[in-house]
Every structure is written in structure tokens, then in C-alpha cells.
Amino acid sequence: MSNPAARKPISLRVLSMSIVGAWVFLAAFPFLWTMWGSFKVEGDFFSRADWMNALTGPVTERQFGSPFTLDGYDGAWVQEEFWRAVINTVIVTISVVLISLTLGTLGGYALARSGFKYTFWLLMAALVFRAMPHVTLVSGYLLPFFQLNIWGHLPTTIIVLVAINQPFTLWMLHSFFLSIPKDLDEAAMVDGCTRFQAFRLAIIPVMWPGVVTTGLFSFLLAYNDFTVTSMLLSQENQTMIPKINAFLGSTQEEGRVMYAVAAVVSSIVPLFVLILFFQRQIVSGLTAGAVKG
């Protein structure tokens, strides 16, 4: 390398490689271990005799004739009807992403283009709202929702998640729209467009990178939510995460804990795929707020 600043002594390189290796191991190993273990029976995954059993699975082999079994998945997906929770999760996440992006792009655009003082206050209010623990908000919802008889339904939860997600979406898209030059839509308006036409014709075609990134985080919020979904959804409308929590209540029975393990792995796998495809956008989204202030 030509840059002498980048040249490093061997010892330093070994040191940094080993720290990186240790970190990757720490970050990845628990998930890989649990994924592997989800194909075993409880006697192997929680082995009293020897931890190697979780790798080789002798008890599983004795019970099922093969070191791998889909028993946990069968129990979770078929017996405990985890598929219902998966369908609910799909409905909730897709609706939340679509609605919060629609509201967020409109609002974020307005915040980025208006120079009045109240935009500052709106953004600050959004920051305070973002910091509110979700469970405090939920304790405000429950009683009115019982009264209005809208507790337990998916649409209620979707709207609530959209609202909780708005502060973040607004901040993110606001700073993204700030990076789109003002001249673009102002030129369109000089050409006779109204503000909304300018938004539709000049801004929408160029806003997709920001929208995709924001959408990913809306997806993660809806997909990962536990507080809102566990408190606002009735038993049959539960999404994946509260359903997993419900599994834990019955872990005492033999074999049941593997249902929870299988369900947990089922909920992690989609995230693996998501990171695989959208790693770049996720990273840029995480840093966007930091770099732009």
C-alpha cells in the first residue's frame, strides 16, 4: 500500500483480526447455536449430561431415528397454530409500512420545505414522542379502547403502530428530503405546477432510496414490536412475538420449550434474509440520523 498511515505491524494486524473474530463469534454464535438446536429434542438442547449432545443429538436419534427432527416446528406451527400468528404478522407489517410511508413522505416533505418556526417545534415534539416508552402510551390506550370496543382487532394495532412510528419516519424522511435540492420542485412550480403536483412529478421519482431505507425501519418496528401487540391484540389476532411469549407460559411440560425454540428461530430467519438483501440500506439508515444531525 502506498499510504504509510495504512501500513501496520504484524502484531497489530493479528490483534485486530482476533478482536474482530471474537466479536463476530459473540454476535453470531448464539443464533447459529439456537438454529442448530431447534432441530433437536429438549433432552439434547438442554442436556444435563454433556453439552456436545446439542451438536450430535443422541437423544433425538433414539427418539426419531435421525439426529434431526422437525418435531419442534411441527408442534409450534401445526399444533400451536403459529401459522396464524405469522399471517397476522404479515398483515400488520405490510399495512404499517405502507401507511406510515404514505403519511411520512407527505409530512417529511412539508417539514423539509417549510421554513417557519413551528417546524422546529414539531420536530422537537417528535423527538420527545420518540423517547416515550411505548408501554406508557399503551396504558393510555387500553381503557378508551375497551370503552370504544375496538380493543383486540388488527386495524387498531396497525393504526397505533403507524402513529408510534411517525416521529421516527418524519425525522428520517425530513432529513432525506433536505438532501434533495429545493430547485427541483421549485422549478416545477415555476413551470406552473401546484405544490402537490410538484411533489408528485418532481419529488416522487427521486425519493425512492430514502423511502426504501425508512420503510425497512418501519418494517422492523412493526415486525419486532412486543409491547403494543401483546397488550392490544386478542388471543386469536396475536402476532409472532407475543405468541412466542405465550408459548413460554407452558414451558414446564416436557417438549414444549422446543416449540418456543422453533418459533423463535422461525421469527429470526426472515430477519437474516432481510439483512442479506438490504444490508447497505440498513447501514445507511442507521447512520443517516447521525451524519445529518
Binding site: 404514505t102 403519511l103 411520512g104 407527505l106 409530512g107 416533505y109 412539508a110 417539514l111 414539531l122 415534539a125 417528535a126 414522542f129 416515550m132 406508557t136 402510551l137 396504558s139 393510555g140 390506550y141 393504526i159 397505533v160 403507524v162 402513529a163 408510534i164 411517525q166 416521529p167 418524519l170 405544490r195 411533489f199
Partner: peptide
């Protein structure tokens, strides 16, 4: 532009407080 987003936040974040 902003009313839908504002309405959602007022109804489900400010009012609950």
C-alpha cells in the same frame, strides 16, 4: 401535507399522555 401524520401523532401519542 402534514395533517394525516399530525393527526395520527396527536390521537395516539399526545392524547394517550
Amino acid at each position: 401535507f402534514i395533517w394525516p401524520s399530525l393527526l395520527a401523532m396527536v390521537l395516539f401519542i399526545a392524547l394517550p399522555i
